[in-house]
């Protein structure tokens, strides 16, 4: 059953993608390689749209990927899948600790996970750059954008919109 599989795969992403939106991306590349639900180029388009539309990027990408697999219902099932682990874990945590503080244990565990998550994100970054930045002009734009990100602390959506406008003006 496609819906059960879809729910299961996105449940797994919700369970294992610690740290939010960017961590979801490497998991989606895994899905595209494993099931051929969408090609990596289609995935690139989904990520681009998800970054440029309102809402948390992780949720946008799940809805989009689910829709690609099986229409409206697919989008809903994938989104339900990715939020269910959060719901369960956060409700349990709220029940366990009356007053919440980032418990030292949780923090210690997170510190061990972080370097592994960094490796995953770097892998996805390489893949996305390989697919999306293919000529000299694109590489120059990438360098300028990166430079701006480090020197002017504008919000990510500013750079996403800017890069869209640059793409349109330069006919990339």
């Amino acid at each position: 059953m496609i819906y059960a599989l879809l729910f299961y795969r996105f449940f797994l992403i919700g369970l294992l993608a610690v740290g939010g939106g960017a961590t979801t991306i490497p998991f989606l590349f895994d899905l595209s390689a494993q099931y051929h639900w969408f090609s990596s180029n289609e995935l690139m388009n989904m990520i681009a749209v998800s970054e440029a539309t309102p809402g948390p990027v992780g949720i946008n990408m799940s809805t989009f990927a689910g829709f690609k697999v099986n229409g409206i219902l697919g989008g809903i099932v994938a989104t339900l899948g990715i939020i269910t682990p959060s719901l369960i874990i956060i409700i349990l945590l709220s029940k366990l600790f009356g007053r919440l503080s980032c418990h030292i244990n949780l923090d210690e565990i997170f510190k061990t996970l972080q370097p592994a998550v960094l490796a995953l994100i770097i892998n996805a970054t390489i893949e996305i750059t390989w697919l999306g930045v293919q000529n000299l002009i694109s590489s120059c734009i990438l360098t300028v954008l990166l430079f701006c990100m480090f020197y002017f602390k504008k919000s990510p959506i500013f750079y996403i919109l800017l890069s869209g406008i640059i793409g349109y003006c330069l006919q990339l």
């Binding site: 970054t125 750059t129 697919l131 999306g132 930045v133 793409g167 330069l170």
Partner: peptide
């Protein structure tokens, strides 16, 4: 264009 932005 956005793909380059995402990459950055």
């Amino acid at each position: 264009g956005i793909k380059i932005g995402v990459s950055a």
